[in-house]
Computed example of a mutant assay.
Amino acid sequence: MRMKMLLLGAAMLAGAAAMPAQSQSTDDYQHWIVRLRAIRVTPTERTGPIEPTFPTANTAVTNAYAPELDFTYMATRHVGAELILATTRHDIQGRGALDGLGKAGHTWVLPPTLTLQYHFLPDAHVRPYVGAGINYTIFYSEKASGALQNAIGKTSLGLSDSVGYALQAGVDVDITPKIFVNLDLKYIDIDTKARLTTGGLIDRERVHLDPLVPGIGIGMRF
Results as ranks from 00 to 15, higher is better:
residue 85 L to M: 14
residue 178 K to D: 14
residue 69 L to H: 09
residue 192 T to N: 00
residue 212 L to S: 02
residue 207 V to T: 05
residue 169 A to V: 06
residue 53 T to K: 12
residue 171 V to N: 06
residue 28 D to H: 13
residue 152 I to L: 14
residue 113 T to P: 04
residue 90 H to M: 03
residue 103 K to H: 05
residue 106 H to N: 10
residue 214 P to Y: 04
residue 75 A to S: 11
residue 171 V to D: 03
residue 120 F to E: 03
residue 43 P to H: 00
residue 26 T to K: 15
residue 134 I to P: 13
residue 26 T to F: 15
residue 21 A to Y: 06
residue 136 Y to G: 06
residue 71 F to D: 02
residue 197 T to M: 08
residue 185 L to R: 10
residue 209 L to W: 13
residue 150 N to P: 10
residue 114 L to K: 06
residue 141 S to D: 13
residue 94 G to L: 05
residue 156 S to R: 07
residue 173 V to W: 10
residue 105 G to K: 12
residue 66 A to L: 01
residue 166 A to Y: 01
residue 73 Y to S: 07
residue 214 P to G: 07
residue 204 R to H: 15
residue 189 D to I: 03
residue 199 G to D: 02
residue 36 L to H: 01
residue 139 F to L: 03
residue 13 L to Q: 01
residue 217 G to Q: 07
residue 88 T to S: 10
residue 152 I to D: 08
residue 15 G to D: 00
residue 126 V to M: 14
residue 48 G to D: 08
residue 87 T to F: 15
residue 102 G to V: 05
residue 98 L to H: 10
residue 107 T to V: 06
residue 10 A to C: 09
residue 86 A to H: 15
residue 123 D to E: 14
residue 198 T to R: 12
residue 202 I to C: 05
residue 194 A to N: 05
residue 148 L to Q: 04
residue 146 G to K: 15
residue 154 K to P: 01
residue 126 V to G: 12
residue 27 D to I: 01
residue 90 H to I: 02
residue 38 A to Q: 12
residue 1 M to F: 08
residue 127 R to Y: 06
residue 10 A to M: 07
residue 102 G to Y: 08
residue 86 A to M: 14
residue 50 I to R: 10
residue 60 A to V: 03
residue 104 A to N: 01
residue 200 G to S: 14
residue 122 P to S: 07
residue 177 P to Q: 11
residue 178 K to F: 07
residue 179 I to D: 14
residue 70 D to K: 08
residue 121 L to N: 08
residue 23 S to Q: 15
residue 127 R to H: 09
residue 180 F to K: 10
residue 186 K to G: 11
residue 139 F to Y: 09
residue 13 L to E: 00
residue 130 V to Q: 08
residue 120 F to K: 10
residue 21 A to I: 01
residue 33 I to H: 12
residue 205 E to V: 00
residue 111 P to G: 04
residue 115 T to R: 13
residue 217 G to H: 11
residue 109 V to H: 07
residue 132 A to L: 12
residue 174 D to Q: 14
residue 122 P to A: 07
residue 158 G to S: 14
residue 22 Q to F: 00
residue 192 T to H: 00
residue 131 G to F: 09
residue 24 Q to R: 15
residue 188 I to F: 03
residue 20 P to V: 04
residue 147 A to E: 11
residue 63 N to A: 12
residue 199 G to T: 05
residue 188 I to D: 09
residue 193 K to H: 12
residue 143 K to E: 10
residue 211 P to H: 09
residue 23 S to T: 13
residue 52 P to G: 11
residue 104 A to Y: 03
residue 123 D to S: 09
residue 184 D to T: 04
residue 85 L to I: 10
residue 142 E to S: 13
residue 169 A to N: 04
residue 110 L to M: 13
